[in-house]
Amino acid sequence: MIQFNKTLVTDDELPWEVVEPKIKRKIMSYNNDLMLVKVAFQEGGVGATHKHPHLQISYIASGIFEITIAGETKILKEGDVYFVPSDVLHGAVCIADGVLIDVFNPMREDFIKA
Rank of each mutant, 00 (worst) to 15 (best):
M1K: 08
M1V: 03
M1T: 12
I2T: 11
I2D: 05
I2L: 05
K6A: 12
K6N: 13
L8S: 11
L8D: 11
V9T: 12
L14A: 04
P15R: 06
P15G: 03
W16L: 11
E17A: 12
V18Q: 15
V18I: 15
V19P: 01
E20P: 00
E20N: 06
I23K: 02
K24W: 04
K24H: 08
R25F: 13
I27T: 14
M28Y: 09
S29V: 01
N32Q: 12
M35P: 02
M35K: 04
V37R: 04
V39T: 14
A40L: 08
F41D: 02
F41M: 08
Q42A: 09
E43L: 00
G44W: 06
G44H: 07
H50N: 14
K51G: 00
K51V: 00
P53Y: 10
H54W: 11
L55N: 06
L55P: 00
L55D: 12
Q56R: 04
Y59F: 14
I60A: 07
S62C: 05
I64Y: 04
I64V: 14
E66Q: 14
E66D: 13
I67G: 00
I67F: 06
I67V: 15
K74P: 00
L76D: 03
L76F: 07
K77H: 12
K77N: 11
E78Y: 08
E78A: 15
G79T: 15
Y82K: 08
F83V: 12
P85F: 11
P85W: 15
P85T: 09
L89N: 13
H90Y: 09
H90N: 01
G91L: 11
A92P: 02
A92W: 03
C94P: 02
A96D: 12
G98D: 01
L100R: 04
I101W: 06
I101T: 04
D102K: 05
V103L: 04
F104Q: 06
N105K: 08
M107Q: 03
M107N: 04
E109R: 15
F111G: 03
K113Y: 08
